[in-house]
Design a binder for these strands. Sequence first.
DNA 1: TTTGGTATGTTCGGGACTCGCTCAAACTAA
DNA 2: TTAGTTTGAGCGAGTCCCGAACATACCAAA
Lengths: 400, 400
Amino acid sequence: MATSPPTDMPTRPLISAAVVGRANRGRVLQALFDLGPTSRAELARYTGVNRSTITAIVQPLVDNGFLLEGAPLPAGGAGGKPARPLTLSPTASPIGAVQVLQGRVRSALVSMTGDILAQDTRRLPVTGRRAREATDAIGASLEAVLAAAKRPPFGVGVAVGGMVDTDRGSIVEVNLAPALDGLALGPALASRIGLPVLLDHHPRALLLGDRWFGPGRGISTFAVLYTGEVLGGALMLGGHLHRGPAGAGGELGHTFVQVDGELCRCGRRGCWETIATLDWLRRRAAEAGLPDAARISTAKLCRLAAKDPAAARLRDTYARNLAVGIANLQQTLAANRYVLHGDAARGGEPFATAIQQHARDLVPEHPGGRPTVVLGGDDDRAALLGAAGLVLSDQLQFTV
Amino acid sequence: MATSPPTDMPTRPLISAAVVGRANRGRVLQALFDLGPTSRAELARYTGVNRSTITAIVQPLVDNGFLLEGAPLPAGGAGGKPARPLTLSPTASPIGAVQVLQGRVRSALVSMTGDILAQDTRRLPVTGRRAREATDAIGASLEAVLAAAKRPPFGVGVAVGGMVDTDRGSIVEVNLAPALDGLALGPALASRIGLPVLLDHHPRALLLGDRWFGPGRGISTFAVLYTGEVLGGALMLGGHLHRGPAGAGGELGHTFVQVDGELCRCGRRGCWETIATLDWLRRRAAEAGLPDAARISTAKLCRLAAKDPAAARLRDTYARNLAVGIANLQQTLAANRYVLHGDAARGGEPFATAIQQHARDLVPEHPGGRPTVVLGGDDDRAALLGAAGLVLSDQLQFTV
DNA sequence: TTTGGTATGTTCGGGACTCGCTCAAACTAA
DNA sequence: TTAGTTTGAGCGAGTCCCGAACATACCAAA
């Protein structure tokens, strides 16, 4: 959360009349996101208010082109005036989305409907201490896509593949990119382009991408796991992304699953990361004598597993290792739904099912339900949509 | 035609004028809980509203005796009309609190100020399949304390030392009390006494007791750990108790910290419970040759540790074992504050500090803060206050 | 003692919402 | 044609918060 300064004001604001309108408008738009094209009457039923209230909220948005009124639908069996579905306009104000990776930056202009209207990728100078150059490259990339906007964008979301301080909108640390460490990227971009800028950790952006445009659409509690060289995650609890103070939560890779176990990159022993990342997989693949073990991925492993029993065993063990952490999350939070991103997601449905089966075996029965493991969409697209989702969540999900 | 939405999202109702009043009244009362005696002007500053708004909210509550207006305080150095502090009235409507244990039931009448006005303890027939007798005993105990109420109570909270289904208000399973398994205690009590009844898991009641009357007062994010024969916990995240669907969350004792480790009571291997309960402590105490090892507690261990190096080492290892799970919570949720209850709490401040030190050693630095381990109050009292807290949270914390 | 400054708490008019009711429009089925 | 159903708009009423103004109460310096 970049633009708002870190307030230590411990106040619990009351609800004012002004904020009620904003909040309700946000909720109606949320409903439109979650339900797709929906008539005013159905929105009224869904939100439990009078139809006239929906009209009052929606009409200005239709008038200024934010919402589109579709053609009257043929009435349902019972007769009656045909409903006119409302949809989010693909040409309404777009959202800027930035993904900061180790060696490059990707920017996009995203419509409210989840379409990528423009895109830009460029190299990012991250070695040495050239923070200014990095900021300039990111800003230039962002400006390139914002120039394609026909209406002034709502804001900009930035997903960073490293540790961030969401309160300050600054980067704490990005592996192998020392130029970015400590960089207050959010405020820098905000003052450069004159728009609100929200900055967050990459897995949390993925979560919001899934929440608004992916398999988490309309779901109030679920988790995202990102696997690969590292292991990270994010949590949606009760309709809100759980960040923790300054965005400290979600460091799932460095929870202990094997006290005093293998040494982790972080210097401690037995982190989940030590048994559920590509590093572990490649070492075990080499031990098992699998071909090209040093560059194996879950996708390759799954292909090998079709004919090589050793690969199939390794695949199953890896699925179980991933399931261990999911089981811990399930026992702790009972999020029930877990969306895979990164390397593990490219193992496809069978691999997700294998993880799910292990996770279910690892938690006891409870009336609250069982864990379900599903695939997230394409990572690159999901990250950009997620960066846009940062802005959507900020604009639409008032805590009131 | 009015199809239910294809999501698990409980149709987000919009905010109406009526609910705003209720919610704001709740927030003002929360502020009074959290701040103690507070003048109208200070409440206005704290909640960010106009003083006249506070007057409008507070005046009816003063008139009907729910709030008390104290004597004018001597004005602060700068002059001005002296403030008249408002306090919750100890004689306002009380709350019924019930704690269901394996062999007995305790009931109490709790004032809004956290005083226990009346109390009742009786044996609970829990063997065999005599659900009716158990319900009768609980109901009779509750009625005994409710009879002491001078005004009609707000409701009744029930804390159960076992697995519960909070949605149904029913008990899923209580160890060694088969008569209670599956019992819909909430509805049964509600129809018997004609008051709303809220039922929840024991650690979650402790959490709410701490939130309203203990070390969690006014803190929006913290966790409670209960240790002893079993290991359980509860989470306050962003001002709301996280229950999970049907109350499935918080099963911290059965998260894995040692994959394929020691066999746990639950049938799986390497649960946190296997290294952080009295069972582990007593076996290790026996191995170390400590006196009366089979009945040792953390409190006894801490006393022994003063002169026996072996006891001191065991004490340190036990503190680290507890810290492992705290570190995992910290990495996952960054709750920052951890309140101890049960056996470990009776190890006193030095033991809490030892756990805290280990927990800090086990998590990396982050601007979001470091874990803090503090002692909860007396368990028996905290559980009853926590049962009352179930009602307070229900009445005062509208999600709007 | 007077006077100006400061803070508290109340009163009152105004504005921003939502609610319930009513009505026209559009479609179905008998 | 007619009755029934559903959608969407219009209007007055009610509820709540805000801001300005005012009375009250205390302090401190002149």
